[in-house]
């Protein structure tokens, strides 16, 4: 038995917004009867605002609950606001989904995306001519959807990719390909993280940061105990300091160096800084 949240149970027992909107302004479909789950979303749109939303679902309890959640979430929203809803938001609304059921939430956000695209006049292509390359032939999952799911949900393993997209859950022959895409995406994520400030420091930059950290963070703490610190020299990643005041000759000075000075410098400057005491 799945460990469904109370919200999921509530929504599959009594789903909201079930049915068809006659003369809907936008319709989006995702999944298929062959795959075992399928969702059709109907939208009524006025002045760029979703005034009504209904759904029909062929699928399990979590598919019904995800569809119901989606329609509740988008009512009253502008198209731009609705478009920002990711599968993660649906999962949060539901109070979580079992890992193996994550693809139900992805189905919701995909169907919504298709509905909005169709409203804006973008021709919805069927699976055979879908954008991107079909990676999982069993479930017709494209590399685009796989990459999107990896990014939006911070996926780290092929198993997670299967839980979120169903790709690889059939004959399993695409698993090496999934592994390749995942590695590519992880590599990209890794790079962008580095660019956010983890590029190697120049010597000048390092010196400035060490001085700033000592002045702003370390010295005030030492001064509280009647001590002080003096920066003697910086040689690449070796930082030479001298402890002053009550710190000098304190039996705990080694501890102070390691757990305060070095740790703070490692936290604020670089993770491999080494602090050496000059007596």
């Amino acid at each position: 038995m799945w460990d469904y949240s109370d919200k999921v149970k509530e929504l599959y027992k009594n789903p909201k917004n079930v049915g068809v909107i006659e003369n809907a302004d936008a319709v989006g479909e995702e999944g298929s009867i062959v795959c075992g789950d399928a969702l059709k979303v109907f939208l009524k749109i006025k002045d760029n605002v979703i005034t009504d939303a209904k759904f029909q679902t062929f699928g399990c309890g979590s598919a019904i609950a995800s569809s119901s959640a989606l329609t509740e979430m988008i009512k009253g929203k502008t198209l731009e606001e609705a478009q920002k809803i990711t599968n993660r938001d649906i999962v949060d609304y539901l109070g979580g989904l079992p890992e193996e059921k994550m693809h139900c939430s992805v189905m919701g956000s995909e169907a919504l995306g298709k509905a909005i695209a169709s409203y804006r006049g973008v021709k919805i292509k069927d699976k055979s001519e879908a954008e991107g390359e079909i990676i999982c032939k069993c479930f017709g999952v494209t590399d685009q959807l796989i990459r999107k799911a990896i990014r939006e949900n911070n996926l780290k393993t092929v198993e997670e990719v299967t839980n979120y997209t169903k790709a690889g859950g059939g004959c399993e022959s695409c698993i090496p390909e999934l592994e390749r895409i995942l590695q590519e995406e992880l590599h990209v994520a890794d790079k962008s993280e580095k660019q956010e400030g983890k590029i190697p420091l120049s010597n000048i930059k390092r010196m400035q940061l060490v001085e700033k950290t000592i002045t702003d963070v370390i010295r005030p703490q030492l001064q509280q105990d009647g001590g002080d610190i003096e920066l003697i020299d910086i040689d690449n990643k070796k930082v030479y300091v001298s402890l002053r005041g009550s710190c000098a000759g304190c039996v705990a000075s080694n501890v102070t160096l390691k757990y305060l000075v070095q740790d703070k410098l490692r936290e604020f400057v670089e993770s491999d800084i080494e602090v050496i005491e000059q007596k």
Binding site: E29, G31, I33, A38, L39
Partner: peptide, 19 residues
């Protein structure tokens, strides 16, 4: 069946759509 997109509950027949 009411919830299903593949069944037309009003006319009691399959909707005939396939996706």
């Amino acid at each position: 069946l009411e919830i299903s997109p593949f069944w037309d509950s009003k006319n009691k027949k399959p909707t005939g759509i396939r996706f």
